[in-house]
């Protein structure tokens, strides 16, 4: 615990520390100019790209990122493979959250609102496209099609994280397992689904090694299903857990005596978080405001 006041800054330990830092910070979440536990995030991502090139080599003419998040790993892939690095896509960084719900016509533009191909760069080339994760697969599918339409001869997709197969209960709002493309499909099937010529994910070991953290100090649950702490039972987890009627199960007396924590490291059978809102999505697929739907209407003051 850190306190900052007129007496300055000081810290106090109030419980033994058993940190399991989020490996996804190194893959995607953190700003690249961050250093976490002594490891620069940009450098870790470049290293993941190098590892990816060793684990999944391919003959190609150009390595390009999905901007911005795929850039460091693409640089690493290019360095290790010797294939030239290039910029085949331009990103509009200002689309962001407009707070204006797109009309159906605009929604159909899909990723074109954000990403546009540079035809002269792409035409006739065999491309290695490096991205950090595949979640639902919709973005990559649209991207591969867009690159082919722009004249790419081949599109090889390389991902600098292993397949995301499990929900995160610690601060990432991944879709439910049913919506994660990698839960039901093998790598070749995902490859077919997104329409790529080949697909390669970095190994879990490769990703962890690139962070230079001891594996036991990291959480990798969304990739492995092994959670670093005992998880509450289904129904006492998820985004809507505090918005169901009080009390949820403890009878209001506290202590949560009827919860049944699973052992540390055990796979959690959770499949579907309680669905609270079905919000209007903007062009990024982000809710434009407080969600709608009857469930949430109950919660409004």
């Amino acid at each position: 615990m850190i306190a900052i006041d007129e007496d300055g800054l000081r810290s106090q330990r109030f419980a033994p520390a058993a940190p399991h830092g989020c490996v996804f910070e190194y893959v995607y979440l953190a700003r690249p100019d961050t250093t976490i536990a002594g490891r620069g995030v940009h450098e870790a991502r470049v290293e993941m790209g190098r590892t990816l090139a060793r684990e999944h080599p391919v003959e190609a003419d150009m390595v390009m990122p999905t901007p911005e998040s795929g850039t460091p790993a693409a640089i690493g892939y290019a360095q290790e493979s010797g294939i030239p690095y290039g910029q085949g896509l331009v990103k509009n960084s200002y689309v962001g959250r407009t707070f204006i719900a797109p009309s159906q016509t605009i929604r159909q533009l899909g990723i074109r609102l954000k990403l546009n191909p540079l035809r002269e760069v792409i035409k006739g080339k065999r491309l290695v496209v490096v991205d950090d994760t595949i979640v639902r697969g919709n973005t990559q599918r649209a991207l591969v099609r867009m690159l082919r339409e722009a004249g790419a001869a081949e599109v090889h997709v390389r991902i600098s994280a292993p397949p995301v197969q499990w929900p995160c209960f610690f601060g990432i709002d991944f879709p439910t397992r049913a919506e994660l493309i990698a839960t039901g499909l093998a790598v070749e099937e995902v490859c077919t689904s997104i329409g790529a010529d080949s697909l390669g994910y970095i190994s879990e070991e490769g990703m962890v090694a690139a962070t230079r953290q001891p594996p036991e100090r990291l959480c990798t649950a969304c990739f492995t299903g092994v959670y670093p702490v005992a998880m509450p039972e289904d129904g006492r987890l998820g985004k809507g857990v505090l918005e169901l009627e009080l009390p949820l199960g403890g009878g209001g007396r506290g202590g949560g005596g009827d919860s049944d924590p699973r052992a540390v490291g055990e796979r959690h059978p959770h499949r579907q978080a309680p669905l609270v809102d079905v919000p209007v999505l903007d062009v990024d697929g982000v809710p434009t405001s407080a969600g709608g739907g009857a469930a949430e209407a109950v919660l409004r003051p």
């Binding site: 610690f170 601060g171 006492r236 505090l242 949820l248 199960g249 202590g255």
Partner: peptide, 16 residues
Amino acid sequence: NGNLINAADLRDLVAG
């Protein structure tokens, strides 16, 4: 920042 994974238990405790 972050999630309290025993939030439901804590909420029941606080509700009292």
